Simulated assay, not measured.
Amino acid sequence: MAVKPKHLYDELTRRGPHQVLRGDLALIGLPGLVFTPRSGLGLPAVAFGHGWLQPVDRYLNLFRHLASWGLVVAAPATQRGPLASSRLFAADLVSALDVCAGVRLGSGDISVSPEKLGLAGHSTGGGAAVLAAADDARVRAVATLAASQTKPFATDAAARCAMPSLHLAGAADVVAPSVGHSRLIAANWGGPAQFRVLPKVDHMGFAEGRHWSGLLIPGSSHHGALRIARVLLTAFFLVHLAGEDRFRPLLEADVKGAPIEDTSALVA
């Protein structure tokens, strides 16, 4: 008998069965962090792009949660200035995937399958993830959190992306309005795309804690948004990268606080 989506949701709110290791990407030439399960061969990996001006430390609980469920997460700490290049950040995300797929991690007992690579990101990091996915045939799945428009345009790049995608947006976002950026990225997506809007969540709802950039960017961390993002991104990548189809019913159901939205009316 199939497990109900609510039970799957409750399961994924808890940490997974794996102990988690934290490492530094700088040791292999790229500033940033990497989180892995303690051991495992042929693991799935996700490169994550931080938001505009944000340190990667604002997503640590998300990284640990994904790693506890068997995913390697690499987060480049590059392009953090006010005039950051989305194009170069996309290249850094691809480099992070190269590192994961090409280097034994940990003490050599952790490896990543080149057939199980994904991308994710928040804000401009979400837009950069779309740019990277459009030009990298290895990418099997993409997830974004309050994705912002980029230059080159992420909304245009989305049309070249054939892999499954998940896009979460905040209804109270005034920086990258959910009716604009994320919705258009999902609507233009070349492959399967799911779009969910979280009520009362703003642009920074998906970032943890506080940061001085709050003086420039409207919004603040939102506990409910963080929980929903952890659960849905974990389910999404377990299904599409790790092949764990038992979590698929959760992805196909409306989640309290994050219903599935229809974007078909925006497609020309």
Rank of each mutant, 00 (worst) to 15 (best):
M1F: 11
A2L: 11
A2G: 02
V3Y: 02
K4Y: 03
K4C: 08
K4R: 13
K6L: 13
K6S: 12
L8N: 09
Y9N: 06
D10I: 05
G16K: 10
L21D: 03
L25I: 11
L25T: 03
A26I: 08
L27V: 12
I28L: 11
I28V: 15
G29Q: 04
G32R: 12
L33H: 04
F35V: 11
P37T: 10
R38D: 14
P44S: 13
V46Y: 12
H50P: 14
Q54T: 13
N61L: 15
L62G: 13
L62Y: 15
L66S: 07
S68I: 12
S68E: 13
S68R: 10
W69Q: 09
V73T: 14
A74T: 15
P76C: 10
P76N: 08
T78R: 11
Q79S: 12
G81P: 08
G81Y: 09
L83H: 12
A84Y: 05
R87W: 04
R87Y: 14
L88A: 14
V94F: 01
V94S: 13
V99D: 02
G102Y: 07
V103T: 14
L105W: 08
S107M: 01
S111D: 06
V112M: 05
S113Q: 05
K116C: 11
L117F: 03
G125D: 10
G127M: 12
A132D: 09
A132K: 06
A133P: 08
D136E: 14
A137M: 02
V139I: 09
A143K: 01
L145D: 05
A147T: 01
A147M: 01
S148F: 03
T150G: 01
K151D: 07
P152K: 03
A154Y: 07
T155L: 05
A159S: 13
R160A: 12
A162S: 12
M163A: 07
A169K: 01
A169N: 03
A171Q: 11
V175Q: 04
P177Q: 00
H181T: 06
A187G: 02
N188S: 04
P192C: 00
F195W: 10
F195Q: 00
P199W: 06
V201E: 06
G209A: 00
R210A: 11
R210I: 05
H211P: 00
I217Q: 01
I217N: 03
I217D: 00
P218I: 00
H222A: 00
H223V: 08
H223T: 02
G224L: 03
A225W: 03
R227S: 09
A229D: 02
V231F: 06
V231L: 09
L232W: 08
T234W: 09
F237L: 10
L241D: 05
A242F: 07
R248F: 04
P249I: 08
L251P: 06
D254A: 01
A258G: 03
A258Y: 00
D262Q: 02
L266C: 04
